[in-house]
Structures are given as C-alpha cells and as structure tokens.
Amino acid sequence: MPSAIRIRDVRKRYGALQALDGVSLAIEPGEIFGLLGPNGAGKTTLISVVAGLARADSGSVEVMGADVVGEYRRARRMLGVVPQELVFDPFFTVREALELQSGYFGIRKNAGWIDEIMHNLDLTTKADANMRSLSGGMKRRVLVAQALVHKPPVIVLDEPTAGVDVELRQSLWKFVRSLNREGHTIVLTTHYLEEAELLCSRIAMLKAGRVVALDSTKNLLENFSGLYLKLRLDRQELPVDFFREIVSRDGDLYTLKLADFAELEGVLARLREGGIAIIEFEVQPPDLEEVFMRIMNRSE
C-alpha cells in the first residue's frame, strides 16, 4: 500500500527566501500527522505543494501513490484541503457552495453525502443561508465540509483552529478524530502544541524549510525526558549547590529542572542532608511545548 503522502527532497524558493530546503517525509495511511513549526517555517508552502497550489522547484510529492504533477487528477481526488484563510464565495449559499465543490470533483449527484456532512458539522440549519451571513466559526465549518465533499482518503487541515473559539475547537477535534476512525488519514498544521500533543500520533517539526524532527509524539516526549520539580520550602534560600538545577524562582517557590526521575532521589537526599523541609512538592513531565522549544533552539 502506498504512503498517504510521500514527499521526496522538495525544494521551493520565493525570491531570496528558501521556503522549503529539501523536505522529505512519508505519512502513512490511518495516521493523524502533525506538521509543526514557527511562522515562516514552510508549513503552508509544503501543503501548497502537496495540494498543487504551488509547484516545487525540485523534488516530488505523491498522494496515495499519485504524483501531484504528473497524475494531478488522481492525486487531487485523493486529497481534501481545508485552507488556513477563511475564504468563501459571497455569491452562494452553503448548500450551493458544497454542490459546486462536489461538481468540480466530478460528482454530480451528491445530495445525500452533502446532507450528512452538513449534519455532522451542525450546518443543516444554515444550508440555505448565504455564505456572507455566516459567522467566522460557521464559515470555518463550511471550509471543512468543502474539503470532504469528494470523500478524500487524505485530509489536510492548515491551522484549522486558528482564531476559533474553545467550543468549536473541541468539536473540530472530535470531528477530526471520528474522520480518522473512519479511515481517513489526517495531516494537521498547528500553532497550538496542545492540539498536536492531543491528536497526533506522529509529528514533523519544520524550521526554515527543513525537517528538524520527525518521530512519534510519544518518542519525542520521551527523548526529551527532562522533568520539572516545583518546591516550596520552609526557608527562603536554597543552598548554593542547587544553583545548577534552578530554572526559576518566584518568592519561596523554586522550579528545578532534572534530567530524569533518577535525579529526583539525589535532590531529596541533598535537601535532607541540608536539613531543609519541603512544604509543597510537584513533579511535571515535559510537554510538547518544551520539546518544541528545545528542538527549535538546538537547530539554530
């Protein structure tokens, strides 16, 4: 079975900017794959190349085995893209927009499926409303619906929850998970690391057009297995020999950084030897944000 998306050494330059600098990665069927990176890292450019909205200077991209240039018709039928910008055609109603999108993909009679998507995205009551009259959140749902009209096996969501309220974010996450359960491969770009940690089974981190990390979310978190120890003590000052571990201090609340749980015992022993009593104690495992920051700094 071919990869859902296979990207081979893709390069793309816009004037002086090398937007993509030799990106290679493969996304397998059934994954929820996260594409992370700071602004300008090349996430949207990469998605544009996959979707045929931009052409790579070199390298190749396949969607379910179909080359996005040579076999663009097959490749595009396999792919549903939810664009980042909140775009819409002000001339049409929700239903018209979905029927037109369906027709562009060569599907003539699609009313049943369109009704089902509208139902799943809570758009049924707005079916005959003009696109202009919808709120931002509703327009975002229509964009998701438009990406699904042709039942693509691979769905790409470019920052789907940017500027979206908490409620819609939660319902979009739920919807993405249910699409994934039904067998769709999902590719997600996001600024919200929490979102990636929650949803994605694997993650690629991009920086300046290069892949700087590519692993399962679990491995990424484990490889950066440092942990934080928060301590409130019975006295104001920690002895000098703790300075190496201190990350921050807020009054009598210290945050210490440890390499792993094994170091914890040593710290507690040293405190005991110094006759320092602990009033409050909390251990925090690393989150994706920490991993992200460390990878981004490491690849300066």
């Binding site: 045929g52 909205l53 039928r77 775009v87 562009y104």
Partner: peptide, 10 residues
C-alpha cells in the same frame, strides 16, 4: 482567495 476552490479540484 476563493479561487482556491477551483484550484484544488482536478
């Protein structure tokens, strides 16, 4: 920006 609706399909 809605030209994208016509550029994504085959």
């Amino acid at each position: 920006g809605n030209v994208v609706f016509m550029l994504l399909p085959p």
